[in-house]
């Protein structure tokens, strides 16, 4: 167990580090200069040189990168070139938008998908099963940005129930805060709900056809006990795996959704950082995403051992 965890830890760190190198080289490869973008057209050459020095862009790429890595190891991710503020503060500030958005979407997706998937599996052979299957096919096929616009049209433009976009912090107005997150959460969750429903249904069907289920039924257990303890418990490994993948998808999907709903989250910050070649910010963001994804998959792997005693880590 210990060797497994330490091995996972080492590969995680390498993965995250490789992600940072990749972003840094990509930013070097594409044309564009942060100082030029900040000063805009009509910048005078002297100001450009001065800003270059100020931003540390006059340092050669390799030392620039190693300096940044040395700082990052100590928790100092440098200063954003566009915002001229510490990157760490910017990211933690935007997390208050992106975290509730991601967790809200996953929670909503689970609340709908798990019961629906189980229900469809149990009701196989009735009219309910194909209905759920059709729903999940359509839901998975609808792109989230399109769904977002449809939600805005219905809830904001037509009925004025919810804001079309924008964000109000919790401390300023809790109800406005919640209202500003409802539509983005819906838009992000629906696609994942569909996928999770389908996977849950498939996982449950597979388990329900197993011999031990038949045995459990044969020895006279009630169908409720068979379903909730025998079947669901065994399907959980697959369901947790899907959950991990869904969270990753939601993190990535939020980049588009934040743009559509004008939410100042991590995703939009990443887009801005990309557009302005703000490499300290973008590197830190990519490292954050990479860490989150690596950590999630680690959690998922660890959970297998608890869910299924047959799984052992070596």
């Amino acid at each position: 167990m210990f060797t497994y965890i330490s091995r996972r830890l080492i590969t995680s760190v390498i993965t995250i580090f490789l992600a940072a190198i990749l972003v840094f080289s990509a930013l070097l490869a594409i044309p564009g200069d942060p100082a030029e973008i900040i000063l805009g057209i009509n910048a005078n050459p002297k100001a450009l040189v001065a800003l270059h020095e100020q931003l540390g862009l006059d340092v050669a790429p390799v030392p620039r990168f190693t300096n940044w890595v040395m700082g990052a190891v100590q928790g100092d991710f440098g200063e954003s070139l566009k915002y001229r503020k510490p990157v760490r503060g910017l990211i933690t500030d935007r997390l208050r938008v992106s975290l509730p958005l991601a967790f809200g979407s996953v929670l909503l997706a689970c609340l709908i998908a798990l019961p629906l998937g189980i229900f469809a599996a149990v009701k196989k052979g009735t009219i309910f099963d194909p209905i759920v299957v059709i729903f999940s096919q359509v839901g998975a096929a609808v792109p989230s940005f399109w769904l977002a616009l449809m939600l805005i049209l219905f809830f904001s433009v037509k009925n004025h129930w919810l804001p079309a976009g924008g964000f109000t912090p919790w401390e300023r107005d809790p109800s406005a805060y919640l209202r500003s997150l409802i539509l983005p959460i819906l838009a992000l969750a629906l696609g994942q709900t569909a996928v999770m429903t389908r996977m849950t249904r498939a996982a449950m069907l597979e388990v329900l056809n197993k011999d031990y289920i038949r045995t459990a039924k044969a020895k006279g257990l009630s169908s409720r006990i068979v379903l909730w303890t025998h079947a669901l418990h065994n399907a959980l490994v697959t369901i947790i795996t899907i959950l991990g993948i869904s969270l990753t998808n939601i993190l990535i999907g939020s980049i588009v959704i934040e743009q559509v709903f004008a939410l100042p989250g991590l995703g939009r910050l990443a887009l801005t950082a990309m557009g302005t070649r703000d490499y300290p910010l973008l590197q830190a963001e990519v490292m954050f995403y990479a860490s989150a994804i690596v950590f999630l998959s680690f959690l998922v792997d660890m959970s297998y051992g608890f869910l299924d005693p047959r799984i052992r880590y070596t």
Binding site: S156, H160, P163
Partner: peptide, 18 residues
């Protein structure tokens, strides 16, 4: 002044009164 990058969202927000 509200920052809204997407033109469709801006227009929807105008229609909804935001």
């Amino acid at each position: 002044f509200k920052i809204m990058p997407d033109p469709d969202t801006r227009f929807a927000a105008l229609q909804s009164g935001d």
